[in-house]
Amino acid sequence: MHVFIVGAGKMGTFLAADLRARGHTVSVMERRAETAALATKELGFHVAIGDGTELATLRGSPMRQADAVVAATGEDEDNLVVCLLAKTEFGVKRTIARVNHPKNEWLFTQVLGVDMCLSQSHHIARLVEDELDSLSPAP
């Protein structure tokens, strides 16, 4: 599968390496030049520099061929716009977005082109709850 990741911070880079190791075709775009350079070094393949919320940039990007797009930037509004454009302009089958601020999770729905969202805070909270549940005796 071809996965296009927008945002090469810690999460985007980790995900890119992980998916690649599992045999997927991965391409990555990052707006900040320095971050892109760091990610290129870490991943061992070229991370494109560009704003993944800008249509002109996306037209020349691998988003066209992607089976799935992951919006992994540190800004929730940017992640939503990536998904929105992926759906409306490029007809991408699957869009996955990172939720940075748990308060914004309600926005990550199909209204804004998001098929699935990942909220680190919620995920951690659930793991902690499970852990606590396993500690306390059943009522």
Partner: peptide, 16 residues
């Protein structure tokens, strides 16, 4: 000032 903030807010106002 932010295009992305503007469009997200507008879509919410209209569709939600």
């Amino acid at each position: 000032n932010g295009d992305n903030t503007n469009i997200i807010s507008a879509i919410i106002a209209k569709h939600i």
